[in-house]
């Protein structure tokens, strides 16, 4: 997929105000992003035209049903690229979504700055780590977490705190490009220990191919 190709999205959210806000953000994107379908039910992602969209944007809290982890799992199993976004801004939910094979996780408060980038990255099967997710990965204390270097953890946490890669770079005395590569490496390490899914295969393969990680690092 080339970097300028149009991207199609299906939005699953039951709140009309949020839907229109997202459409506005996508409309402002330099690379065309089209919302081909939207609605308050996961069904939208399984029927045309939503079933052929490049990216599924999934609100984790739909109606009264609780968290939609099982919907996420089925979408991932069907090979879909899912961006989860949620009002729930806690690390457990974020880490669990990554484990299930979501392309990335966004807190709703991060929508304005990160929704378009996260969607494009998912469409290109590139890693993308927004601040809320970075904070969750940086403080993750689960025993099955991948081994991160001190520097990687540091970059994650500073990114979470500042929401600005320029500030992180200034604070740590590195370049913004280096900040990005640390974030990508972490994402790939997580993909590598995660469930068998399209995200895992594509992210790891691409990372090795690009020389972002060595095979023996994983």
């Amino acid at each position: 997929m080339s970097n300028d190709a149009p991207v199609t999205v299906v939005i699953i959210d039951d709140h009309p105000a949020i839907l229109s806000g997202m459409e506005a953000w996508y409309a402002a994107s330099r690379r065309p992003v089209t919302v081909v379908a939207s609605g308050g039910s996961v069904k939208e992602a399984w029927v045309e035209p939503g079933s052929s969209a490049d990216v599924v944007l999934l609100d984790l809290q739909l109606g009264e049903e609780g968290l939609a982890f099982s919907s996420l799992r089925r979408l991932v199993d069907a090979g879909r690229q899912v961006v989860v976004y949620s009002m729930r801004d806690d690390e457990k939910t974020a880490v669990k979504c990554l484990d299930l094979g979501a392309a990335t996780f966004l807190a709703k408060s991060e929508g304005r700055e990160h929704l378009v980038e996260a969607t494009l990255a998912a469409a290109d099967e590139r890693p993308y780590v927004p601040p809320a997710l970075a904070g969750a990965l940086g403080t993750n204390a689960r025993p099955d977490r991948p081994a991160l270097s001190a520097r990687e953890e540091n970059v994650l946490i500073e990114w979470f705190k500042s929401e600005s890669k320029e500030l992180v770079a200034l604070r740590l005395g590195i370049s913004v490009k280096t900040v990005n590569s640390y974030l990508d490496r972490v994402r790939i390490k997580y993909a590598n220990v995660g469930r068998e899914a399209r995200t895992k295969a594509s992210l790891v393969a691409r990372a090795v191919q690009d020389g972002l990680v060595e095979v023996e690092d994983l």
């Binding site: 904070g135 940086g138 403080t139 204390a141 946490i157 979470f160 705190k161 500042s162 929401e163 600005s164 500030l167 200034l170 604070r171």
Partner: peptide
């Protein structure tokens, strides 16, 4: 402003990033 609290096993860190702070620090200072 963005206010964050990060607890790790060794450390607790409280941080605030103020978008427009009337502070004496000049840009680029760290």
């Amino acid at each position: 402003a963005r206010l964050t609290v990060v607890w790790t096993s060794r450390e607790v860190c409280v941080s605030v990033v103020s978008a427009d702070c009337a502070d004496g620090l000049s840009a680029g200072d760290t």
